[in-house]
Design a protein around this nucleic acid. Sequence first.
DNA 1: ACCCTCACCTGCACGC
DNA 2: TGCGTGCAGGTGAGGG
Length: 276
Amino acid sequence: MPELPEVEHVVRALRGAVSGRRILAAELNLPRLLAAPSPASFKRKLCGALITGVSRRGKYILIALDHDQVLVVHLRMTGKFISVGLDDPLPAYPHVIFHLDNDRRLVFSDMRQFGRMRLLSLKALKELAQINALAPEPLLDEFTQEYLFATLKKSRRSLKQLLLDQTKILGLGNIYASEALFLARISPFKSADTLLQKRGVLLYEAIRKVLHEAIEAGSTLKIDLNEQNGSYFGSDERFWRVYERAGEPCVNCGTKLRRAVQGGRSTYYCPKCQRR
DNA sequence: ACCCTCACCTGCACGC
DNA sequence: TGCGTGCAGGTGAGGG
């Protein structure tokens, strides 16, 4: 479910809730979600491990442990971390349960079972292909206008599809890709290599803005590890400008917003504001 | 090298 | 009510 801003919130919540805690034992109820190592090795290595910090790279959550071990977690569509007390009921789909040294259990829950977890050494993390292939962090200085423009120039895919490619532009998902293009007033169907530099700058600024804005918006909400974690902003709050708003009027011009399908996924846009 | 399609899962809203 | 269809915020393997 989550895109970069939501993962950032999960990371912050985890940092507050589990940094400095020791894992007493790990239960694995859905071995398939473990990319590596074997279930037996996973449980053995986690037993007694100290959680030293929590960070992320793109949408991958990195839980650092002592003895140079790292737990790499991707939430994919519906993965969640939920913290429960010893007497509290478990959430649905409790695929992994970490028993902590403060009488709490950190549960990894995932309805669709797409989430993935792997435990590896720091050295192996440095060689992990999926992480190494990721584009620069969009909110750090390493993501420059020059990088974005050079990347756009190299691709003939539609902008919407390119924005979803984490090896090219990192952090956006299906919601924020539509939102960024709307903010920049650029057509999602336009071939990436045809975007003029001047409009590339607008796209650069829009990408950063939607990500910052979503992190800020989430920061005003309660950050914890309850059922809501990793989700968007509640069913009543209509936070975004075009996503899931087909048929509603554009906030800029009043034109009816549209939904289209690109690469099998929904794109939302304003046919008037985003003509080019 | 690039890009496309499909596969991985469950749940929910919808129309007949 | 029940059943079929399409859709859901993400990768990643395999193939052209």
